[in-house]
Structures are given as structure tokens and as C-alpha cells.
Simulated assay, not measured.
Amino acid sequence: MYKEPMFLAPVFKDRIWGGTKLSDRFGYDIPTNTTGECWGISAHPNGPSRIKNGPLKGKTLMEAWDQHRELFSNEKGEQFPLLVKILDANNDLSVQVHPNDEYANSHENGELGKTECWYVIDCEPESELIIGHHGKTKEEFVSMIEKGEWDKLLKKVPIQPGDFYYVPSGTIHAIGKGALILETQQSSDTTYRVYDYDRKDVTGNTRELHLEQSITVTTIPHQDARIEQVVSIEQGLTIKKLVSEQYFTVFHGLLQGTVDQKTDGKYLLYSVLNGKGVITVNQQSYPYKTGDHFVIPSTIDTYELTGNAEFIYSFTS
């Protein structure tokens, strides 16, 4: 039986708003100086991560999901449910909205919806996010879009490192310039673009907008997400539960020393934000470092974490 963590090779995406922080901060070998996204844990067909070690070395996470469901709690469903990214917003991302499962399944060839959440790894002093809108009715929402009243419509919030935001499907949102974000989301690549600052791509064309779909799927009026965060300490590990909702449960961990952990029959997704250490399973040690992404399969009952490190980990709810 498979009894070791699966370390994954990230997939990188060039974006009009990307930069070099994924290399500067995490040491990744990025393909361009406008690399906006690191898909660290992905089984999505648009960018599946490849396993770097163990019996499944060379296979994609998608192949592991399809062929070895016992590693993933024998979870049902055709698609691996989550996708973990790191986003470098060297410039403002477009204002966008994502559909829910029902709409995406019907209109996007069976794609999952996209509920997501953001942990602010770092940001510039003036960085901000767009979360929600001020339209009280659908008519008012549409009117402000048609008039281009973006400053009146969009709800902006200043951010600082360590902030966390839960972004359910149907939420108008955008990541602002200067933010470095870890995103945990449903495994979906469906985005409806509402506004893109009238900027042009490398070919001189403005990017496509999806106003009809956006108006259909946006929650009106906007509803601020309410989450309860809980902090606990286990041996050398300080854990903050960031969110626990329909699709995922996400934690922030700060490790200083050693801690024994249990999977409780779940498979766990880890992304190392800072530091280094060792995972020990059945007396076998596996080193980890800043920028690593790995899966603890559900076939592992207990494991030990040692080191000085900061990470985000999650599992399906």
C-alpha cells in the first residue's frame, strides 16, 4: 500500500498581469517574466501537476486520481475536487465572477463551479482586493455596468499579509496589484470577466468580456461571507482554521519543532509558504522546503512533521 507523501511539480501560467515573484519568493523556474500563476496542486486537464517521487513518479495527479482512488479516501466523483494556486498580481487582475456547480455543469461542458478562498502571503502597502459590489438590485447592478460606474459599483478592501478571504461562487472579485496570494478553490478553470480596465493584450486587442454570463451568475445584492476562525496549538504546531465550508476546509500552520499528525482517513493538500523540515512516515524521512506542494494520501494513518515552517493545508469537506 502507498505509504509516502506525493510531492508535485507545479505548472506555471503566463498572464498579462503576472510578474517574477514566483521565482523571487519561492525559487521556481518560471517560464516568463509575466508568470502569474503557479498551479501547485492540480488535477485539472488545463494544467495537471506531475508526481515527483515514489511508485507513481512521472504520473499526473489526474492519473493517480483515476487509477488509485484508494489514495484519496475512495472519494466519489469523476474530477479531483480541489486546485491550489499561488498568484503573483504584478498588476490588477480583471474584475470577474465564477458560476456555481449547477450553472457550470450545464453551460461549461460539465465543469465544476468555482468557490475559492485567498490567503495573503505578501502584498505592497497600498494593495487591495475587490470583494463584492454595491448594486442593490439586478437593475441597478446592470445599469452601473452599462454606464461604466466601476468606482461606484465595486467594493474595495485594503489588505495586509496574513489576511484571509472566502469567495463563494457568484461573488464579484479581483486581486489587486502587488498581492501574492495562495488560492484554494474548486478544480475549475471557468472565469467570467466583467471588467478589464480597457487594457490590451500583447496582440493589441482588448480581452473578451462575459457580461451576459456574469450578470446571470452574480449574487445580487452582494452578501459578505461569514467565517469563524479558530486557533489551536498542538506540540510545536500553531494551527488556525481559516474556513470550513461545503467544498473545503483550509488551515494555516506555523511549525516550530515537531508534531505528530493524523489523517483521520482524509487526504491532505500541503503548500509550504516558508521554511523547511522533514516529514516522517513509518520511519522514512522526506525533506520539504519553501515552495513545495505535496499530498498526504489517505492510506497514511499518522505522520510526523519536523522543522521551522509556515504552510497552508486543506482537505475536502
Rank of each mutant, 00 (worst) to 15 (best):
Trp39Lys: 13
Gly40Leu: 09
Ser42Lys: 06
Ser23Gln: 07
Thr35Met: 07
Ser23His: 06
Thr20Tyr: 05
Lys21Thr: 06
Pro48Cys: 13
Gly58Asn: 13
Thr60Met: 08
Ile51Tyr: 11
Gly58Ser: 13
Leu56Thr: 02
Lys57Arg: 15
Leu56Val: 03
Thr35Ser: 12
Arg50Gln: 14
Gly36Met: 05
Gly54Val: 01
Ile51Pro: 11
Lys57Ser: 15
Leu22Phe: 07
Pro55Tyr: 08
Thr20Asn: 10
Gly58Arg: 11
Ala43Gly: 15
Asn53Gly: 11
Leu56Pro: 03
Thr35Lys: 07
Asp29Trp: 04
Leu22Asp: 03
Phe26Leu: 02
Leu56Gln: 06
Ile51Lys: 10
Tyr28Arg: 02
His44Trp: 07
Phe26Asp: 00
Gly27Val: 04
Gly47Gln: 12
Pro31Ser: 03
Thr20Leu: 08
Gly27Phe: 14
Pro31Glu: 01
Arg15Pro: 03
Ile51Trp: 08
Arg50Ser: 14
Asp29Pro: 04
Gly47Ile: 01
Phe26Arg: 00
Thr32Pro: 01
Asn46Glu: 14
Pro55Thr: 13
Trp39Ile: 05
Gly19Met: 00
Arg50Glu: 14
Phe26Asn: 00
Thr35Pro: 09
Phe26His: 00
Gly36Ser: 08
Glu37Lys: 05
Tyr28Met: 03
Ile41Arg: 15
Lys57Phe: 08
Pro55Asn: 12
Asp29Tyr: 06
Thr32Leu: 00
Thr20Ser: 12
Gly27Leu: 11
Ser42Gly: 14
Pro55Gly: 09
Ala43Asp: 15
Tyr28Glu: 01
Thr32Arg: 05
Tyr28Gln: 02
Ser23Ala: 10
Lys21Gln: 10
Thr20Lys: 11
Ile16Gln: 01
Thr35Cys: 13
Gly19Ala: 12
Leu22Cys: 07
Gly58Glu: 11
Thr35Asp: 08
Gly58Lys: 12
Gly54Glu: 10
Ile41Lys: 15
Tyr28Val: 01
Pro31Leu: 02
Lys21Pro: 04
Asp29Arg: 08
Asp29Leu: 11
Gly27Met: 12
Asp14Glu: 09
Gly58Met: 10
Trp17Ala: 00
Thr34Pro: 01
Ile51Ser: 12
Trp39Arg: 14
Asp29Lys: 09
Thr60Gly: 13
Gly58Ile: 03
Trp17Asn: 02
Gly40Thr: 12
Trp17Gly: 02
Asn46Trp: 06
Thr60Pro: 12
Ala43Phe: 08
Ile16Trp: 00
Tyr28His: 07
Pro45His: 13
Ile51Thr: 10
Ile30Lys: 02
Trp39Pro: 13
Asp24Phe: 05
Glu37Pro: 09
Gly18Asp: 04
Tyr28Ser: 02
Pro55Ile: 12
Cys38Ile: 06
Leu22Pro: 03
Pro45Asp: 14
Ala43Arg: 09
Lys57Met: 13
Tyr28Asp: 01
Pro48Ser: 15
Ser49Trp: 00
Lys52Arg: 15
